[in-house]
Simulated assay, not measured.
Amino acid sequence: MEIFATFDDSVFLEARDKVSVTLCPYDAKLCEPEKALDAYSSCQEWIADNNLTIRRDVLEGMARCCTKLGQRDRALDFADLLSKDVSNTCHLTSLLLLKVSIFQHFGAVGSKMSALQQLCSLLPFNPWHWYNLGQMCLQLLESGRTTERCESSEEQNDGGTEEQQREAAELNDSRIWLKACVCFIRTRLLLRILRQQQSSFVLQRTESTLQMTDEVLQRLSPKETTVQALTEVVSEDLIPEKMREDCQDGDSLASVCVQSFRERWWNKILLTGVLETDGLQTRTQC
């Protein structure tokens, strides 16, 4: 057992004269959006062409500054520049989260929903993206601002893709209600699977979110047959082996096949017929 001969006995002794060091709290430097934008702009010219990581950080910072300053077009322009450097799912996830924050700030409902749906399609086993999409649908229902937001001139001029415009055209109560049900049912299924491997504060967060999800579904009050039909559709891919195989986070985009939300989920859900049998009822309790 010569390997133990290399250890000094003092390693295993309790330190007697150890001096305690008080660490100063770290406070991140905060700047006004305008000053921060100027600082980011001055950094750009010093970034090496091959330093894509710093370039991405700076562009994202500039996009967020422009969002705070109310400069929507500039913020989206920086997001478009970021999209040119996307090479893996981590990059794409960060870009979509950035777009969600931009669209939320400017009240672009259709575009925000489209970005959230892309996140759910890109990372279908992440319960938090499903939960956020469900929360957005719930807020639209509670505010009563679904169709009217879709018809606003701001929404019409989003400049989104054909898929985004089609999704915006579907912002009516019955379809938003159905999407909310789908999202919270999917969230509940995923969290129940994940909590088997969790502990401590992570498990507490999961349990708390599960409780809120159950409460929301009670408020949405879908029929039991509707819950069963939707559960069957959204649980088809929840097989442990498949979930491990499809966990592509960080891989190159060439190895990831991202179907649109409509193709992967919505068309199947509409085929169940639950929209006609349950979703057309008035949901005044939401």
Rank of each mutant, 00 (worst) to 15 (best):
I176S: 05
Q218N: 08
V109I: 15
C31K: 08
N267H: 08
A168I: 07
S260R: 01
L178W: 03
T272V: 12
D249P: 05
V258E: 15
V274L: 03
T225S: 14
Q104D: 15
L123N: 04
Q139E: 10
G61H: 00
M113R: 07
E224M: 11
S208N: 12
L119N: 00
T53M: 14
F201E: 13
S41Y: 10
C90T: 08
W128E: 04
S143T: 15
L59F: 00
L52V: 15
A75L: 08
K29Q: 05
H105K: 09
L98E: 02
L220T: 01
E207R: 00
R205G: 08
T93Q: 13
Q281S: 11
L271G: 06
Q218Y: 08
K35Q: 05
L194E: 10
N50L: 07
C247H: 11
C247N: 09
S174P: 08
R72A: 05
T53A: 08
T213E: 05
S260H: 03
T231A: 03
L178N: 13
K179C: 11
L230D: 01
P25R: 09
S221Q: 15
I193W: 14
A5F: 04
R264A: 08
Y131R: 12
V256A: 04
S114L: 12
L37A: 13
R55E: 07
L119Q: 01
Q204W: 12
R262G: 06
N51F: 15
K68I: 12
V233N: 03
Q281H: 05
Q218G: 05
E162G: 03
A169I: 09
E167I: 15
S143E: 10
S83N: 14
L140N: 02
Q204P: 10
S41M: 02
D57F: 07
L52G: 05
R149M: 14
K29F: 08
D57S: 14
D214E: 14
L116N: 06
V234R: 04
K242H: 07
E170R: 03
M136V: 10
L123K: 13
T22S: 13
